[in-house]
């Protein structure tokens, strides 16, 4: 089965996951290359809830060892793209 995710899909998924923790955030509020926690004012609990929301929607599980690869919006986008094309969710 080939990946059904486009960059745009993934971008939307990330926004929705952020909004689970920070409902008032819109995409235009976020500088894509800045630290996502600072951009969206996420504390560590919010950040975990954000990752859990992403796992629910994509199946991709992100451990702390990989945090440095997902700490901005664009990095998360690339990380998820790579993971999903490697191992697309059924």
């Amino acid at each position: 089965m080939s990946s059904t995710y486009t960059q745009q899909n993934i971008q939307q998924i990330i926004i929705e996951a952020i909004q689970e923790a920070a409902p008032e955030i819109e995409q235009e509020d976020i500088n894509m290359d800045e630290d996502i926690r600072e951009e969206c004012d996420l504390d560590s609990m919010d950040f975990i809830n954000y990752l859990i929301a992403l796992k629910k929607s994509t199946g991709v599980s992100i451990a702390e060892g990989d945090y440095s690869q997902v700490n901005t919006f664009n990095k998360m986008l690339n990380y998820l793209s790579a993971q999903l094309s490697k191992n697309p969710q059924a």
Binding site: S44, I48, I52, K55, S61, A63, E64, G65
Partner: peptide
């Protein structure tokens, strides 16, 4: 905490608090 969280999925993540 670092040991616990290094490879665990987000739902098993433990924070200092």
């Amino acid at each position: 905490l670092q040991q616990q969280n290094q490879t665990s999925p987000p739902e098993d993540h433990v924070i200092l608090l």
